[in-house]
């Protein structure tokens, strides 16, 4: 484990904590896409099928459990919690996320490291994660305004992606036989999707103003 990957994991963890904080503290999920959250829950559930078959480290196992539990907690809260559910921007969150699931699954059947149940779902989770932010970005684009905690949430998610790319560059130069082009290409695509959001995030940060996205 290198410092970049650790920083990536931590910013990922922080992003989830910020999201939970927003929902629990404000009892509101406005600005948060339920579809993106459902996709993330699916991503973690399908990627960590190896939880019981391959042991890597205590750190990995705990983080996997945390990611699965937290993503399910967010989805349940947005769907079930009486007060939180009312603040959900249902009319803005209309992205057809089933297409993302379908496209990722077809791609996973075609491009995978090995044609086995676990490997296909692993590839599927990697592809789906790259696209899962789209409903969230579309929702923010449509609502125009981005509240503080939602902005921080997406910022930390983007930071996680950026650190993972630095991690791969580091590993490429320090490890022999480092080849994981499925994860790297998908990760790169995922990070590029955040570029626009980052641009407006930094503008609002520079001007010390509330974040706004152009219509």
């Amino acid at each position: 484990m290198n410092i970049f990957r650790f920083a990536g994991d931590m910013t990922h963890l922080i992003s989830i904590l910020v999201l939970l904080l927003k929902i629990y503290a404000t009892k509101s999920c406005s600005g948060i896409s339920l579809k993106t959250q459902e996709l993330y829950a699916l991503v973690f559930l399908t990627r960590y099928l190896d939880l019981f078959t391959d042991f890597i480290s205590v750190y990995n196992t705990i983080m996997k459990l945390v990611f699965i539990a937290s993503s399910l907690a967010v989805v349940c809260c947005m769907r079930m919690h009486r007060v939180v559910r009312r603040s959900y921007d249902k009319d803005l969150d209309t992205f057809r996320h089933y297409f993302l699931i379908l496209a990722s699954f077809v791609l996973a059947l075609l491009v995978n490291e090995k044609f086995t149940f676990q490997e296909i779902f692993w590839a599927f989770s990697i592809y789906l994660e790259a696209l899962a932010i789209l409903p969230q970005l579309v929702l923010l684009q449509r609502s125009g305004n981005v509240d503080n905690l939602t902005g921080q949430y997406v910022f930390f998610l983007g930071a996680y992606r950026a650190f993972y790319i630095l991690n791969w560059i580091y590993r490429y130069f320090t490890e022999q036989h480092f080849s994981r082009w499925i994860a790297c290409v998908s990760g790169l695509v995922q990070t590029v999707l955040y570029a626009d959001f980052f641009y407006y995030y930094f503008i609002s940060w520079k001007n010390n103003a509330k974040m706004q996205l152009p219509a």
Binding site: R5, D50, D54, N60, F67, H177, R180, A183
Partner: peptide, 10 residues
């Protein structure tokens, strides 16, 4: 092994 190497990240 190769498999472990490629899935050691989160």
């Amino acid at each position: 092994s190769n498999k472990e190497e490629s899935h050691d990240e989160l």
